[in-house]
Nucleic acid binder design. Structure first.
Length: 484
RNA sequence: GCCUCCAUGGUCAAGCGGUUAAGACGUUGCCCUCUCAAGGCAAAAUCAUGGGUUCGAUUCCCAUUGGAGGUGCCA
């Protein structure tokens, strides 16, 4: 019996959940669930300056909306808490000092200014800056302890060997190895007493018994250094899986700065969470059997396999997301569709004034993203200015002259319709057309244009006439005839 | 600059020494059709470059080029 799988998603509360983060969270979740493991949410808020108020709550909310339910986390509890790093602040120094005693770390009294000066000097010489271990060599531990007791500010740095190699193994990238002399002595405990990511991630992953770490490739090149820490403690490192970033284009990451959407934004624009998840899952990952179907979360859990992950960054493609969304929209029940569409429709028309369920029926198969709805139906509420050029349509063999004739022909038929239903309208007009010498399209195209003012509408002339109602249809028809 | 990693159509990707190099989105054309959408049928489009290894490279190795990440008392 192998040890139970425990994975974690560990965002820092610096804002909304961006799509790269959502994907990382998704894969982390899928991996855990695939192996009947535990999925944990941990908040990494050790950088007090970058913390954004309310961001933690936003993360909880987004995770739930996405369906990424964590088994342990700040707001759900668990046996390995607390799950917020600032609430664990007393834990880290203890381990850091253990490392100091073992020689894997040391106290450093150099100020930020000292470091900055040395960095500039190194750069001026055209060299790569690296901390020179000044305090390791010049400040004996006993002196360090005295100075600390006296209240002098200090940090604790990792003591990276100057020779040899450091390495780790990644599920995707395999064995990654670097020369130790290219590594810097990173700060583990900051002057404010809080740990840096470099230290906290190791301590917490160990203490929380994390078996598999899924995170972005921004940590790929520092992972060997983290393994040095595991070795110094005598701990077994977790299995790593590093994920590529989600790109806006070939060279830029998706970023809020360029107005790229977050998960919340997409939801607000009228994307369905299932569509977003399905799309995101396939961005940088392909199932064994690569036929792309419509995957539910349960499907994804069943199919997920780290082998299918890509090693190169994937570009976020809105076209495909839109297609996925349209497919999911079509799969909604009529009731669910109407509930989702109603607020968008209400932006431009009074839902009580129209046969909403019929309108929704027409709209459902034509809805790509819900935010497109207002622009698709606004003409129902108010007739747009009629451009008589619209009557000219080559495929329908229609000209303005024919349109004029057609409208004159069709008006009495509409007036005579006993009951204003689609089928009655349809039958009345279609039965009369053959004798008129005009083609169906020569009558129906102008009629639809006359009452909608739009070249493209979510339905034909009869559907539009029905929705508008007798009075409005005839009024619009008269106005169009007068304009021709 | 240095370190690590990556490289199949416009995009997401399958492929893991011998294939007519899958599939999806998008694009184009045709069909259907009172418009649009949907649907059906076609089509165009890919192994970054140069060296090796091999009977044979998209596949293995090296270099170049391009790209990503790192190089913070940020994560």
């Amino acid at each position: 019996m192998s040890t139970p799988v425990r994975t974690r998603f560990a965002p820092s509360p610096t804002g909304y959940l961006h799509l790269g983060g959502l994907r990382t969270a998704l894969y982390t979740y899928l991996y855990a669930k695939k192996h009947n493991g535990t999925f944990i949410l941990r908040i990494e808020d050790t950088d007090q300056e970058r913390e954004v108020p309310g961001a933690v709550e936003l993360i909880y909310k987004s995770m739930r909306q996405a369906g990424l339910l964590y088994d342990e986390g700040p707001d759900v509890g668990g046996d390995y808490g607390p799950y917020i790093q600032t609430q664990r602040r007393d834990i880290y120094p203890k381990y850091a000092w253990e490392l100091v005693e073992r020689g894997g770390a040391y106290c450093c009294f150099c100020t930020k200014e000292d470091i900055e000066r040395k960095r500039k000097e190194a750069e001026a010489r055209g060299e790569t800056y690296k901390y020179d271990k000044h305090c390791l060599h010049n400040v004996p531990l006993e002196e360090a302890k005295r100075r600390i007791a006296a209240g002098e500010p200090y940090v604790i740095r990792q003591n990276v060997p100057t020779t040899g190699k450091a390495s780790f193994d990644d599920m995707l990238y395999g064995h990654v190895e670097v020369d130790c002399d290219t590594l810097d002595d990173n700060v583990l405990i900051k002057a404010d007493g809080l740990p840096t990511y470099n230290f906290a991630n190791v301590i917490d992953d160990h203490l929380m018994a994390i078996t598999h770490v899924t995170r972005g490739t921004e940590y790929l090149s520092s992972a060997p250094k983290y393994n040095l820490l595991y070795e110094a403690f005598g701990w077994t490192p977790p299995v790593y899986m590093h994920l590529t970033p989600v790109m806006k284009d070939a060279t830029r990451k998706l970023s809020k700065r360029y107005g790229d959407p977050s998960f919340e934004d997409l939801l607000a624009q009228g994307y369905l969470k299932e569509a977003i998840i399905n799309f995101i899952a396939l961005l940088g990952w392909a199932p064994k059997d690569t036929t792309e179907e419509f995957f539910s979360m349960d499907d994804l859990i069943r199919l997920f396999d780290a082998d299918g992950l890509s090693k190169s960054p994937a570009i976020f493609n809105t076209e495909k997301l839109n297609w996925f969304n349209a497919e999911y929209v079509r799969r909604m029940s009529p009731e669910a569709y109407e509930a989702a569409a109603r607020p968008w429709l209400a932006q431009v028309l009074d839902p009580e004034r129209f046969d909403l369920s019929r309108l929704c029926e027409l709209l459902q198969g034509r809805t790509e993203v819900f935010n497109q709805l207002p622009g698709m139906v606004d003409f129902l509420a108010k007739m747009p200015p009629l451009d008589t050029e619209l009557f000219v349509h080559k495929k329908s063999k229609c000209t303005q002259e024919i349109a004029k004739e057609a409208l004159a022909f069709v008006r009495p038929l509409l007036v005579a319709v006993p009951e204003w239903t689609e089928s009655a309208l349809h039958d009345a007009v279609m039965e009369a057309i053959p004798a008129s010498g005009m083609k169906n399209s020569q009558v129906l195209w102008p009629l639809r244009i006359a009452i909608t003012g739009r070249a493209a509408t979510p339905g034909g002339a009869f559907e539009m006439a029905y929705l508008l109602g007798r009075e409005e249809t005839l009024a619009r028809l008269d106005a169009a005839m007068a304009a021709l």
